[in-house]
Computed example of a mutant assay.
Amino acid sequence: MSGPGRRSKVATAIETHDLDGIGAELESRWSREQDRWSLRRLADYFNAELLEQMLREAGGTTVEIDPADLYDRVQSDDRTTRTEAERLLERAGVDVDALRSEFVSYQAIRTYLRSHRGAEPPTDDGPTVDDAVGTIRRLDGRLTSVARDRLSNLDDLAVASPRVLTSIRVYCDDCGARLDLDALDDGACNCFDDSN
């Protein structure tokens, strides 16, 4: 379905690594009415599948970690966790730089689903979680940048090299659950626990 021009990064990875069937699976999980997956969740799923396939292709040491968990570790903000995961992949014969270069964003997933597969979400009744999270991230980046600039211009600040970190969390007043922005795509608070 894609027209002339650059080939989709997702389609290229699917073809290069023989990820047969994953395109239809992504489309199904994004297009269905019930329990629909967000684009971010689909990107994480795709990247974990890609990682697992590249491990198979490397044919090296067997890794006893779930690919989704290993993907989370490779993408971790914690340097130690990330480094340990990268070393594990290298010992298994995976070129970590090549792997990272093939990871896709949620935007790439959206482009692939819409342009290559002609898929659309079931309804478009307004802003989505992806839209809200994207806006919040842009505002957070702007806040960090402004705060860093303001602090670096203070002559009487008693911090030699100020570094600004911001953290946005969502709290549920009913059950007390705390969710990072990334968790908003994938789950709900304890109020929506199926066991209740």
Score class of each variant (00 low, 15 high):
1 M>F: 13
5 G>R: 10
6 R>I: 03
8 S>P: 12
9 K>A: 12
10 V>N: 02
11 A>S: 05
11 A>P: 03
16 T>A: 07
17 H>W: 09
20 D>I: 02
22 I>S: 05
24 A>G: 10
24 A>D: 06
24 A>P: 00
26 L>H: 00
28 S>T: 08
33 E>K: 10
34 Q>W: 11
37 W>E: 05
37 W>I: 06
38 S>F: 06
38 S>K: 12
39 L>A: 04
40 R>S: 15
40 R>A: 14
41 R>I: 13
43 A>P: 01
43 A>H: 11
44 D>Q: 06
44 D>T: 05
49 E>F: 12
54 M>S: 11
55 L>Y: 06
57 E>N: 12
57 E>Y: 05
59 G>W: 10
60 G>E: 12
62 T>I: 07
62 T>R: 11
67 P>Y: 00
68 A>N: 14
71 Y>D: 04
71 Y>L: 02
71 Y>F: 14
74 V>A: 12
74 V>H: 06
76 S>L: 12
77 D>I: 08
77 D>G: 10
77 D>Y: 09
84 E>H: 14
87 R>F: 12
89 L>F: 04
89 L>H: 09
89 L>R: 01
91 R>F: 10
91 R>P: 02
95 D>Q: 06
96 V>I: 02
97 D>E: 06
97 D>H: 09
98 A>L: 08
101 S>T: 01
108 A>Y: 05
109 I>D: 03
111 T>E: 10
111 T>K: 09
112 Y>P: 05
114 R>W: 04
115 S>N: 15
116 H>A: 05
117 R>S: 01
117 R>M: 07
118 G>T: 01
118 G>R: 04
119 A>G: 00
119 A>N: 00
121 P>I: 13
122 P>I: 14
124 D>C: 13
124 D>W: 12
125 D>C: 03
125 D>M: 05
126 G>L: 06
127 P>S: 15
127 P>Y: 11
128 T>R: 07
134 G>P: 00
135 T>W: 03
135 T>K: 02
137 R>H: 08
139 L>E: 03
139 L>W: 15
141 G>T: 00
141 G>A: 05
145 S>W: 14
145 S>N: 11
147 A>G: 08
148 R>T: 11
149 D>C: 13
150 R>D: 14
152 S>D: 10
152 S>P: 10
152 S>Y: 05
154 L>F: 01
155 D>M: 01
156 D>K: 01
163 R>G: 14
163 R>P: 05
166 T>I: 11
168 I>P: 02
168 I>R: 10
169 R>H: 10
170 V>A: 03
171 Y>S: 13
173 D>A: 04
173 D>K: 14
175 C>L: 02
176 G>P: 09
177 A>H: 07
178 R>T: 09
179 L>D: 02
179 L>W: 07
185 D>W: 07
186 D>F: 13
186 D>I: 13
187 G>N: 05
187 G>S: 10
188 A>Q: 02
188 A>H: 10
190 N>Q: 14
195 S>G: 09
